[in-house]
Nucleic acid binder design. Structure first.
Lengths: 305, 305
DNA sequence: TTGTATGCGTTATCAA
DNA sequence: TTGATAACGCATACAA
């Protein structure tokens, strides 16, 4: 049993292909008699018609496809997957609500091929965890006006949009929750040196008081030099439990969106995933109006209240 | 700057469209002079030509698209995401190596729309965590000969392939590692009642000695009735740490592929993700030879040695 | 209010 | 060894 096409519907209804297309797409500039409209719609349903996206894409030069490219960590941390998957879920859901379908692809190894992006004619792209170097390579593959968003990455580039947690307000809230000025900061290494620098600067703490996580041993060595009871801040909830063994007076910035793993009594700053709604809307507009350009190149995930 | 097409190459090279297509696709039945071949290939590269998959799909009636549909849990557990994402990564990678692209979609809510499957003409589909009921609905959407694989689900259906951990050998290894007969079993509730039943039966333990996890409180109530020191088995590494507080003599079946979260001293049974290679190969063959049919409807992830 | 005809970029059949 | 050309299924400008 082959799939029904517009032609099949037209034949069954005794009308032309064009008429069927008008009705199915609800084209406003055409006026169709109610009689033929209901007839065609009914037959379409009977034949289980669905539109063939390959054909439609070819015709419209729009595929309705969004790429989510995940750049794998060089040395993966157990928790990074959780962060990424949460982002993936959120974006997929929002794209789905707007009628887009999502192509998911991991970027791995030294010389990955980005052909997919051009072969599939993606309407928009999200890059998760991209670092500066690979970004330079990949950015040559589009820039033909398709909207690109970098998530959890900091890119020195004025052309593309970036989405990162609002560290500035995050630290402000953390300080407020601590009640006193923090004396140390423990943070994740991320994938990208730029992003680490940003977090460091936003924290307002001296370099000497900041520890970038590499290993449990390194972290413990750092903590052993901090007097017990000193107030501190931890960026990334997955590092919090380790710190809590020795230092209880901390506030945690839950940048991985899994606050539940931190004990309830600890001060937690969580982030909204709601900003992605704006982001996907922005992308949507960008796709429809080729000349739409938005000056907000930075989108910050806001601190939950 | 518009994207170059075969036509552009043909014009630039002074040959016909057909010739270019033959060369690019390396069609064996055609013989092409070396001269034109290198000329065309060179121009194609200069123009940064990539094939337009919409057009190719339309013509070939094959899209090179594999769907991975993730059925969200009704009450999600924090660890289930980790399991799913691991599977997603693995399948995407294997599909990518074989030239397929992956469409990822979450299935959620009461009345999800499965139109994507038919609109995009997927070449193959993986269902993750599907339950019996939704499977019945979705199975009507294909069955037009496209290969379907159910992962981490147990479906009463002889038409489709299922992939689940090899519980039988898992329990056998666990028993061996314990050194004595286990006296209790703690396991995850999964999404699907069928799968729970399977695990229970394979364990060989009485119903009264089996606890299906619902909440921490329930688990602790169950454990409080088990004498300390009794040997037991835990299915799913994410439950292990909770059990370990009171019962140390356990063996853990790491069905979520994150064995690292369990302390090193504990007996762990891990599963291979290698079987997915066979699975994707099977799918690949299925796609190319429409009449290929494989009798092995069950694929078990094997226990690591 | 409806129909005809063209083209989107490919692949593949047949002819040259 | 190459080239015209007909589909694939759809959307739409233009005719009727």
């Amino acid at each position: 049993m082959k799939k029904a096409t517009i032609k099949d519907i037209a034949k069954a209804a005794g009308v032309s292909i064009a008429t069927v297309s008008y009705i199915l797409n609800d084209v406003k500039t055409q006026s169709i008699s109610d009689e033929t409209r209901v007839k065609v719609l009914k037959i379409a349903q009977q034949l289980h018609y669905v539109t063939n996206r390959s054909a439609r894409s070819l015709k419209l030069q729009k595929t309705g496809l969004i790429g989510i490219l995940l750049f794998k960590d060089l040395e993966p941390k157990p928790w990074s997957d959780l962060n990424y998957v949460k982002t993936l879920y959120r974006i997929e859901q929002l794209c789905g609500e707007r009628g887009y379908h999502v192509i998911f692809m991991q970027i791995d190894g030294e010389a990955p091929s980005y052909d997919m992006i051009r072969e599939r004619n993606l309407d928009g792209v999200f890059l998760i965890n991209v670092d500066q170097e690979r970004f330079a390579t990949i950015s040559r593959y589009f820039g033909f006006g398709i909207p690109v968003f970098a998530v959890d990455s900091h890119i020195e580039d004025t052309l593309f949009h970036k989405i990162i947690p609002d560290f500035e307000n995050g630290f402000r809230s953390a300080n407020a929750r601590l009640g006193e000025t923090p004396e140390f900061l423990v943070m994740d290494a991320y994938n990208d040196a730029e992003l680490v620098g940003i977090v460091k600067r936003r924290s307002g703490l001296d370099e000497a008081r900041i520890h970038v996580y590499e290993s449990k041993e390194g972290l413990n060595a750092f903590l052993s030099k901090i007097p017990a009871g000193s107030p501190g801040i931890v960026v990334n909830e997955f590092l919090a439990n380790e710190v809590l063994r020795t230092h209880e007076h901390i506030a945690v910035l839950c940048t991985s969106h899994y606050p539940d793993i931190v004990p309830a009594k600890v001060a937690k700053i969580t982030y909204e995933l709601n900003e992605y709604k704006q982001v996907v809307d922005m992308m949507d507009r960008n796709i429809h109006d080729a000349d739409y350009s938005n000056p907000d190149k930075f989108i910050y995930l806001s601190v939950s209240s």
